[in-house]
Design a protein around this nucleic acid. Structure first.
Lengths: 240, 240
DNA sequence: TGGCGTCCTTGACTTTTGTCAAGTAACCTT
DNA sequence: AAGGTTACTTGACAAAAGTCAAGGACGCCA
């Protein structure tokens, strides 16, 4: 609506940004983008860096521009579970606080575009489309979480590992489209992370990789570089 | 805001309704409640009854007024996972469709207050507070789903069963407040359902119940009636 | 270049959970 | 009250995944 009477250019910061089109910012018009860009800044974080600790969590929201962020929960005795992975251009930082604790950590090198809580909340008031967008992202996350609950609760170790590889292929390798049965990507997680994501041990994950490799379903180079000659053959092993 | 100039009474249907205060309807003013009540109706469903099938799913939304509804997902070979439980006054039916399939089934006798999709969407347009409320419920569901992912992925069978009992106690027994360490309730799920919720088999669930009973953590009568003399002792077994 | 640390793999063995089978208890129907 | 059905429990055994231990590959830093 206001786009029509809005002649200002969008901020340079946003012009080449993926989140501008597919992310949360797509709900904003040029004037709002400019306002938000004023209080936002891009920054990078290295592998293993904590993104959402106690204090920071509520104060800043971010778009993931590149890299992978893992969301984790930890039991009192240290057992850990990854409850979600965020890829570009996902939104990071749950609006309005939830009681239960969640940690966000860079799984790879990541780049983020962050802005203060207040800015986004102000915009939500004047632009209902933004809240709508947020609701949609949240529904998508909920859907993904439930999908993964099935994987955690009902799949075998072999199926879990195959499901994980499919998930990564879909989100990392841009060429892994339905019309192309081949995929190639670098694993964004260590074996330990993968184990925490799948509810398994490192050793079990490793053994399943070995089996997939022996069966020609995947090829691995340098521990991280994965080639999947046939996604459908991989999917056949994912139990879905 | 419109509450001030609104002198009409709220509909009789809503007057005694829990969802009116704690549920999604709390975001509506009297005029909107009246409009919604016109196209809504209460109905009951028996144990095991399908609530959200292929066609019905998107067409009707409901508030759960009493009883428990289970949300399930099923793998192609029939393995099933319960991905959520809805208690009164939770909202049922995800707004705007998601691609992945989810089934809702009455776990116990339930009573619902349903209204057509169109009605709620119309109101969301004129009352942003409603969408906000929906976002909050969705965030709560997401939080619960992630909490359960930890249970599924990282807890032992014994801890899973204890966690399940705690969850039910909190949601069913109104007297199970922090200040009272005792709880008593009727299990809303069969052993098979519990197994599907916990990612276990019926037999394992049964054995864990037997152990909790032998250790005096719980008492069970008639398979379903559970007494927990000390919630904190139960919690100590839940691994959280 | 060498040494150290991290990440990963592999093997032997243990534990946990699942499977199969039998049997009991409660309930519903007639 | 009899018969059948469903839900649950229990036991013996099998399979899956975890644990412990050793060793290899690679990268980093002095």
């Amino acid at each position: 609506m206001r786009n029509d009477i809005q002649t200002e250019d969008i901020p340079a910061l946003c012009a080449s940004c993926e989140a501008r089109h597919r992310g949360i910012c797509a709900a904003l018009d040029a004037a709002q983008l400019i306002a938000l860009a004023r209080s936002s800044h891009r920054h990078r974080a290295g592998e293993g860096e904590e993104l959402v600790g106690e204090e920071e969590s509520i104060e800043r929201y971010s778009n993931v521009l590149s890299g992978v962020v893992k969301l984790t929960k930890t039991l009192s005795d240290g057992r850990q579970q990854i409850v979600g992975l965020r890829f570009a251009p996902d939104f990071l930082g749950s609006p309005f606080k939830v009681e239960s604790k969640l940690n966000a950590e860079a799984a790879t090198k990541v780049s983020l575009c962050s802005f203060p809580r207040g800015a986004i909340e102000r915009m939500m008031k004047e632009q209902p489309g933004l809240e709508h967008r947020l609701l949609q992202q949240t529904l998508k996350e909920l859907d993904e979480a439930r999908e993964w609950m099935v994987t955690l609760g009902r799949k075998t170790a072999a199926e879990k590992v195959a499901s994980f590889l499919l998930l990564i292929a879909k989100n990392i390798d841009p060429s892994a489209r339905p019309d192309r049965d081949k995929a190639e990507f670098e694993l964004p997680l260590t074996r330990a992370d993968i184990a925490d994501f799948l509810g398994l041990t490192i050793e079990t994950v490793s053994r399943q990789f070995t089996r997939l490799r022996a069966d020609g379903i995947i090829a691995i180079e340098n521990n991280r570089q994965v080639t999947v000659p046939s996604l459908s053959r991989l999917e056949a092993r994912s139990g879905s």
